[in-house]
Amino acid sequence: MNLQGLWVAFTTIIVREVRRFTRIWPQTLLPPAVTMTLYFIIFGNLIGSRIGEMGGYDYMQFIVPGLIMMSVITNSYSNVVSSFFSMKFQRSIEELLVSPVPNWIILAGYVAGGMARGLSIGLIVTVVSLAFTHLSIHNLPMVVITVFLTSALFSLGGFINAMLATKFDDISIVPTFVLTPLTYLGGVFYSIQLLPDFWQGVSMANPILYMVNGFRYGILGVSDVNPFVSLGMILVFITILTAISLRMLARGKGIRH
């Protein structure tokens, strides 16, 4: 396939992915908006008003970057894992496998599809948050780069999960037992400065902490970790997961007999 053909194949996968999550918008776009509205009301307004400031900002302002990032992470991941596994389950993945689309385009298409949903949700949550608080951007490039790379990283994670999954249970184990705890313990609702030294050290082993804080730095200008270290870590993880995904595709892990 020539360059134009590769581009057509890439955009075809993205369009199909976007069509899928917009077709089922009550399952994909609406729930995060409702959930985050509840978070803002309960944690931001009701409880937050009693907590006072955190990191030099109102509690509501402090948690907004974390909640946006949490939505981006979970939706990027779940879009790819559910879409790709459904294709495996229905065998419609064979449409791609018999075609001349190279593996790296398949991966790029799915990651871009996951990013499309993750970033759409991020935008929706941002708009919802504006109804509760004022947001000013401290460092726009940092905001954009961090959110795009984080979305790409968790789309890759979702892809690997879908490749390995053999039943529907397998696609909910990681989000429920790994992703959600790491996100909640990743500094979305608090600064790790509040924790004893030991637990601060433990928290530093949580990769999601770096993403949440990198994004928070971009918006508020405060962070528990060096934001450039955050970006470096995200890039390292993206490189590793990309290599794993391409190797699995080349071997046909879970998709070819």
Binding site: Q4, T12, R16, Q90, E95, S99, V101
Partner: peptide
């Protein structure tokens, strides 16, 4: 094929995979 997709979409999407 994806049972939820429209007939025309299924066919044109396949063509897209061929560039």
């Amino acid at each position: 094929f994806n049972q939820f997709e429209k007939v025309l979409d299924i066919v044109t999407t396949q063509a897209g995979y061929y560039g």
